[in-house]
């Protein structure tokens, strides 16, 4: 089943949409993404009858002449944080019947959350919108999914794009190796914001960028004289779109090239997502690449 954007936009709420997308994805996968368990050392405990003998730490016995048993914390396969750009520009939609970039971001994040939690991976969320940065730390508990979905449901676009600050926050908060999934239009006035974000990769985090764009932003299909209003501040300009179309397309093309080049240089996975694209296909392509490329 392919879920086109129009069909998806008719589903009310992120939960429904995310679930629909997830089911589309699952039916498209050929085998389970579940990759087996791994365990991680938590603490030592003095041996007591009934403990698993195979868990006795013989090296500790050598040192202390006492029996200690290793205790292990049962861990998920993965810790993933979805960083959603909740700025006002993400609220743009050229087609009134379609979805905004933020709705697409929320749907993708929700679907990814379903998938992660279903395979006992931990999923977290960070939303940057203006001055506010909301964060839900990653957990693998089933109940955690509802929390994430509720948060996604409540997203409203506002404020300016502040990817730079989000990058700082994540760098500070993510102590363990994680997958950071950025969902943004990357319209940040700070030229080095994206680079800062991609520096997470240097901290051994896995980073993937979903670059969300409205088709109108890509093709600039306007004809009549228009007063363009900024969605994040009070900038405005009256132009004849036909007169500047060529120049706009050149500027925007250069921006896209720059983003793509920067991601490639930082070994970051880049996925351009148009709001009228079938999202299950987007995710399938993404997951397929990860299965093949990163295992």
């Amino acid at each position: 089943m392919i879920l086109d954007a129009h069909t998806l936009s008719k589903l009310h709420g992120v939960k429904l949409r995310a679930r629909a997308v997830m089911e589309g994805v699952l039916s498209g996968l050929h085998k389970s993404p579940h990759q087996g368990q791994s365990v991680e050392f938590a603490e030592h405990k003095e041996y007591a009858p009934g403990d698993e003998i195979r868990h006795i730490d013989w090296k500790a016995y050598g040192k202390f002449d006492k029996y200690y048993v290793k205790r292990f914390e049962h861990e998920t396969n993965l810790r993933a944080v979805m960083l959603i750009d909740g700025s006002a520009s993400m609220g743009y939609r050229s087609d009134p019947a379609g979805m905004t970039k933020l709705e697409v971001a929320a749907t993708l994040a929700g679907a990814l959350s379903y998938l992660l939690v279903r395979q006992q991976d931990a999923a977290g969320l960070a939303v940057v919108a203006g001055d506010r940065i909301g964060e839900i730390p990653p957990r693998a508990a089933a109940g955690h999914l509802n929390l994430l979905l509720d948060e996604l449901e409540r997203l409203e676009p506002h404020g300016t794009t502040r990817l730079f600050d989000a990058a700082d926050l994540l760098a500070e908060k993510l102590s363990r190796r994680s997958l950071v999934i950025v969902l943004s239009d990357l319209f940040d006035d700070r030229a080095d914001a994206l680079k800062r974000l991609l520096q997470l990769r240097q901290r051994k985090h896995d980073v993937a960028v979903f670059h969300l764009l409205d088709p109108a932003e890509l093709t600039f299909p306007f004809d009549d004289p228009t007063m363009f209003l900024s969605m994040e501040d009070d900038r405005r300009i009256e132009v004849n779109p036909r007169e500047i179309k060529q120049s706009y397309l050149e500027e925007f093309g250069a921006f896209l090239d720059e983003v793509k080049r920067t991601c490639a240089a930082a070994d970051v996975e880049y996925e351009r997502v148009l709001t009228d694209q079938p999202l299950d296909q987007v995710l399938l392509r993404f997951l397929g690449r990860r299965q093949g490329g990163r295992g």
Partner: peptide
């Protein structure tokens, strides 16, 4: 009066203009 249109990529419009 030109049609007002909130637009996400206004930075590129400004730059082109």
């Amino acid at each position: 009066r030109p049609r007002p249109l909130p637009f996400g990529a206004i930075a590129f419009v400004l730059r082109s203009q």
